[in-house]
């Protein structure tokens, strides 16, 4: 621990260091690659203005990064690795853009270590939060800054992050999940008497037949009841979330997470599907 604190003091005392010059000036082809990949159609980016969020891209170290011993984050990470805090996760990134960048400007970045805080107990394990600051310059003019924080932690032996629950599938219900995978909400239909049923089963409770087909629902219904779940945590869900029981015009009810903003009984909804652990689960969103 004293080694971590010593190194923190040493690196903080260095102040701004780790200067790096961009490989290329701000240029239209790289902007084009970026907007194409992001799906961003902002018209100014076609005309020589760089997307603000691209600032860090210009000074990335590239495919074959040269060693940079005076980079404060690199140096601090090495010390924490030695102390057993080997895992890393980024927790915060705050970028401020002083002005727009134009094609032709050549950027330089400098960084400094601003803070190392720890050891802290976190949900991932015990670790240290390492915060660095970076400033980008065009010539001598600062054009953007970034605060970047990582957690270097000692992974817990059983950091078994609860994986989301997936449905148990039987021969009787496989058709339903095959349907959701194909984007269909299938409702079981008795081939003998035509009765629709959900959840499905192997034998028609009305006529006793065991020959089952299905119809594909339009997926439009209304909320019959709902729950806003606050506690306890549910694997794979962010609290609070809404689960709705939806009545379909076909005469059955289907339960799923409600993904919209405001829920109430009677609200028209339409079916969508969310992918969880290889399954496509029915879910509901507000109908227009």
């Amino acid at each position: 621990m004293s080694r971590i604190l010593e190194e923190t003091d040493r690196l903080k005392a260095l102040g701004w260091c780790g200067e790096r010059v961009a490989r290329d000036p701000v240029n239209q082809p790289m902007i084009n690659n970026w907007v194409e990949a992001m799906g961003d159609t902002h018209p100014a980016y076609r005309e020589g203005l760089a997307p603000p969020a691209m600032v860090q891209v210009w000074t990335m170290r590239g495919l074959h990064p040269a060693p940079q011993p005076d980079d404060p984050l690199h140096a601090m990470s090495a010390v924490l690795d030695e102390a057993g805090f080997t895992s890393v996760v980024a927790t915060n990134c705050e970028q401020t853009y002083h002005r727009a960048l134009k094609v032709g400007e050549l950027l330089t970045v400098r960084s400094r270590l601003s803070d190392v805080v720890g050891p802290k107990k976190t949900s991932l394990g015990v670790g240290w939060f390492v915060t660095t600051e970076s400033t980008w310059f065009s010539g001598e003019e600062p054009v953007a800054t970034m605060l970047f924080r990582i957690l270097k932690y000692q992974p817990r032996p059983q950091a078994a992050a609860a994986s989301p629950i997936t449905p148990v599938v039987s021969r009787d219900t496989a058709f339903f999940w095959e349907g959701t995978a194909a984007g269909q909400l299938r409702i079981q239909r008795c081939e003998a008497c035509g009765r629709l049923r959900h959840p499905p089963g192997p034998m028609c409770p009305a006529c006793g037949a065991t020959s089952m087909g299905f119809v594909v629902s339009e997926g439009a219904g209304t909320v019959y009841s709902y729950v806003v779940h606050h506690h306890p945590p549910v694997p794979g869900k962010r609290l609070p979330f809404v689960v709705a029981l939806v009545e379909l015009p076909e005469g059955v009810r289907v339960l799923g997470e409600f993904l919209g903003e405001s829920v109430e009984i009677g609200r028209p909804v339409r079916c969508t599907f969310v992918r969880v652990g290889g399954f496509h689960l029915p879910a509901w969103e507000a109908a227009a």
Binding site: M38, V89, N92
Partner: peptide, 27 residues
């Protein structure tokens, strides 16, 4: 990319005249 997508989401809504001053992310 997450930063870029957040920026895109906001500027898609705000329109091309909006100027992004800062983006602060908690991951």
């Amino acid at each position: 990319t997450t930063t870029g997508l957040v920026q895109r989401y906001v500027t898609d809504w705000a329109g091309p005249s909006a100027v992004v001053r800062s983006i602060s992310l908690r991951l």
